[in-house]
């Protein structure tokens, strides 16, 4: 019989031990349940922060008369720049990103609203599918 882990060992050790005890099917179920709990917990945390931040923005955001004075109009762009560096996978990203950029600029010029986001994203993705060579 496998001895149980010491009660003081970390979550990881306990999970590993439990995984060893379980059959393949149960193991998968247990993992899925843990993922569900993690997803729900992190989702609730993000939601709570989102709502609180929105409340703050609605109630006191009007105090800032000209957001551009503090560079606040640049924040969203900066956030997307950081996101882009995280999504960059090296040179293999270049063709799709170039096509996305060109398509987005053209679509922003010719189409109303935010269609350019959809157009650029789809164009980059389709190019990748078309160029894929196994």
């Amino acid at each position: 019989m496998v001895r149980g882990p010491h009660p003081a060992t970390g979550v990881r050790e306990r999970v590993l031990h439990r995984r060893r005890e379980l059959g393949a099917h149960d193991r998968r179920t247990a993992l899925r349940e843990r993922r569900g709990a993690f997803l729900l917990g992190s989702g609730l945390a993000i939601w709570l922060f989102w709502v609180l931040a929105t409340l703050v923005g609605v109630t006191v955001g009007g105090v800032v008369e000209r957001p551009a004075r503090f560079g606040l109009d640049f924040v969203l762009t900066a956030v997307f720049l950081v996101l882009a560096t995280e999504l960059w996978e090296g040179r293999s990203s270049l063709p799709a990103w170039t096509v996305a950029a060109v398509t987005a600029v053209a679509a922003a010029h010719w189409l109303p609203g935010y269609w350019y986001v959809l157009c650029g994203g789809l164009a980059g993705s389709l190019l990748q599918a078309w160029w894929y060579d196994g």
Binding site: A100, A101, V105
Partner: peptide, 14 residues
């Protein structure tokens, strides 16, 4: 590549 392409599409016109 879709997430990166979407971020770029948001970014470049801005």
């Amino acid at each position: 590549v879709l997430p990166g392409a979407v971020v770029i599409s948001l970014l470049v016109p801005a």
